[in-house]
């Protein structure tokens, strides 16, 4: 479903990704962990080309994104993304946030997009907020809306870029619960997070990154009981509450 090959990314002098390879199968849940500045956010943003790799190959759903500019917008329609800062459209109601892209990009009728949108809002527990504006919601609620907005495009892949990092502690769980529910449905997921409990519960595979490289990958079982790499051990020991 996702194939990244020998991805390099430079920001000026900074070499952020150093020849990263990553393949994600359909339906697989991959959790990417690592310290700040390890390149994990840049990596996930390369999947939908929000960051364009300096070199390498990106293939998503059979389309070579580095080769075809036109393919990028099309593929993005089937790749939902959830951001650390939510990035809801503040000038629109919650429901309008959900219906904009399906109606404008996929030609879905407003009625159909509204019906499915309300269904997704119900699933994230926010149906009664359909006509509220994002600024009237808490951070956790905004992030649940952001997930519903992405789902209303009926994506094949969901990317989560530190979805709970900007949230107050007591709101983290409500967002994680939605994500866990989503994972149970078989959608392909790539999640960058510091939530080790989530990684343990949901991930088919955990990837540890540091300094622009993937240092270790394996099942959560392997990771949290028997990590091999010294850097991985150090990182996991520092976030002791696993």
């Amino acid at each position: 479903m996702i194939i990244l090959e020998d991805i390099n990314k430079h920001f000026g002098q900074l070499h952020v990704l150093k020849g990263v390879d990553l393949t994600v199968k359909s339906g697989e849940k991959v959790v990417v962990i690592g310290p700040s500045g390890s390149g994990k956010s840049t990596l996930i943003r390369c999947i939908n080309l929000l960051e364009k790799p300096t070199s390498g190959r990106v293939e998503v759903d059979g389309v070579d994104l580095m080769a075809s500019e036109a393919g990028v917008a099309k593929v993005r329609q089937s790749v939902g993304m959830v951001f650390q800062q939510f990035n809801l459209y503040p000038h629109m109601t919650v429901l309008e946030n959900l219906t904009l892209a399906p109606t404008k990009l996929k030609g879905v009728s407003l009625q159909e997009a509204t019906e499915s949108g309300l269904a997704y809002l119900e699933r994230v527990g926010l149906k009664e907020k359909a006509n509220a504006y994002p600024s009237q919601l808490s951070g956790g609620q905004q992030q649940r809306v952001a997930i519903a907005r992405a789902l209303n495009m009926k994506p094949k892949i969901m990317l989560f870029d530190e979805p709970t990092s900007a949230l107050d502690p007591e709101m983290i769980q409500e967002v994680l619960d939605v994500m866990i529910g989503l994972a149970d449905e078989g959608i392909t997921m790539v999640v960058v997070t510091h939530e080790m409990g989530f990684a343990r519960k949901v991930a088919d595979r955990v990837i540890f990154m540091d300094e622009g490289r993937i240092l270790e990958e394996g099942t959560p079982e392997h990771f949290f009981t028997n990590p091999q790499n010294e850097r991985t051990k150090l990182f996991l020991s520092r976030i002791a509450h696993v």
Partner: peptide, 10 residues
Amino acid sequence: QHEAAYSQGF
């Protein structure tokens, strides 16, 4: 805001 829009395919 731009990034959210791009990520949806705009």
